[in-house]
């Protein structure tokens, strides 16, 4: 019973309380760069979640075979392998998305969320909990990306997931899909998530 609870907790903490982007400020480069539309955000989210879950599982499995001294390079090899798999599969089956995300797919390797979780969680815990942790963190990251992408696409293009929402008369604020819009939107989202966290955990220590 207690084990089930802890796996559930490992999963949910990544969604908001320890959201990798909004709270821990990790993985900022892809967050800002690919969130110009909701679909790009979703694509990056799925790719990063896959790498996160797989690398967490493998790192947790090979724990006994990794000398402490060279654990970081080995984790990097594991992560880079899965990133390349994602890159090849995306190029083969979703070429449009693969082009839209460009160099940010190979750059998942240096996304601090993934190496961070491998080092801080997967190298110390069992396979099941590591997988749950990876999935939670990945979903938290994806959710942030989709939200940010939808927000920027709505204001900057008048649409969400390519479907026109604002109507033909809407003059899109192109600034929102330009780099400055990324910074400003993320600033608002971080502030909003802090406000929500404080409201929900009133009385608790935040």
């Amino acid at each position: 019973m207690s084990k089930k609870v802890s796996i559930f907790k490992d999963f949910t903490k990544g969604l908001l309380v320890e959201n990798p982007t909004l709270v821990l400020a990790l993985g900022l480069c892809p967050t800002l760069a690919v969130s110009s539309s909701a679909i790009n955000g979703l694509g990056m989210g799925v790719a990063a979640t896959f790498v996160l879950v797989m690398s967490n599982i493998i790192v947790s499995l090979i724990r006994p075979l990794v000398p402490a001294k060279i654990r970081i390079p080995i984790f990097i090899v594991v992560i880079a392998t899965f990133v390349t798999v994602v890159k090849l599969v995306m190029a083969a089956y979703t070429p449009a998305l693969s082009e839209a995300l460009g160099i940010f797919i190979p750059l998942i390797v240096v996304n601090c969320i993934i190496l961070g979780r491998a080092e801080a969680f997967a190298s110390k815990h069992g396979v099941l909990r590591s997988a749950a942790d990876g999935l939670g963190m990945g979903l938290g990251f994806s959710l942030t990306l989709i939200l940010l992408g939808s927000f920027r696409e709505l204001l900057g293009n008048g649409s969400i997931f390519g479907a026109n929402i604002m109507g033909a008369s809407y003059q899109p604020a192109i600034m929102m899909i330009l780099p400055p819009g990324a910074f400003l939107s993320l600033a608002m989202m971080v502030a909003a998530s802090r406000w929500i966290l404080e409201k929900t955990s009133k009385g608790g220590n935040s």
């Binding site: 400020a25 600034m175 780099p179 400055p180 819009g181 910074f183 400003l184 600033a187 502030a191 802090r194």
Partner: peptide, 18 residues
Amino acid sequence: RFMRGLPVAFITSGLMSM
């Protein structure tokens, strides 16, 4: 209060980027 630290750093970067 909610803007201190990270959010205000992002706003600054946004203005610089502009």
